[in-house]
């Protein structure tokens, strides 16, 4: 594992989602790994992927490292301020199909934390709703 893995692990998750039918060709959702969300002109829906907590290792020397990633789905609210549940459900369904089983991308092994949704509600981006979930990652 190298220092660059800290950034590339988020990109690997994004690439997996794009390759498995989330956003991409139909342009329904934009992806922003590693705190690259623009400060203005946000799209209708976007997914952030950021690191969550420190890298750690269960062994004392070389070998497996582990970390977590937060995936945050943000969907713009329609004019009345209620959540756009149709778009949310559509995107959550796409994401769910892409990650329902653990998967490998290069030297990264990803598994969705299905036991716990970190947050569901109004987003910290004004005018959006948000769903936040954790991915556990093993780095070989």
């Amino acid at each position: 594992m190298t220092i660059e893995d800290v950034n590339t692990v988020a990109e690997a998750l994004v690439n997996h989602l794009k390759a498995n039918g989330v956003g991409g060709t139909d342009g329904v959702v934009e992806f922003y790994p590693n705190d690259t969300v623009p400060t203005s002109n946000l799209p209708e829906s976007f997914v952030e992927v950021v690191g969550n907590g420190a890298l750690s290792t269960p062994v004392s020397d070389f070998g497996i490292r582990s970390c977590s990633l937060l995936l945050i789905l943000n969907v713009k609210l329609p004019g009345d301020g209620a959540a756009n549940s149709v778009r949310e459900s559509y995107l959550l369904n796409r994401i769910s199909n892409a990650v329902k089983n653990p998967f490998v991308r290069g030297s990264y092994h990803f598994s969705l934390d299905k036991k716990n949704l970190v947050y569901s509600g109004r987003s910290l981006y004004a005018g959006y709703s948000s769903k936040t979930m954790n991915f556990n990652v093993k780095i070989y």
Binding site: N52, A54, S56, L70, N116, V118, G121, R122, N134
Partner: peptide, 14 residues
């Protein structure tokens, strides 16, 4: 709420 330093639940005041 953090578990072993990892965020597992977020509760903004909102």
């Amino acid at each position: 709420i953090y578990e072993n330093g990892k965020l597992v639940k977020f509760m903004p005041y909102m």
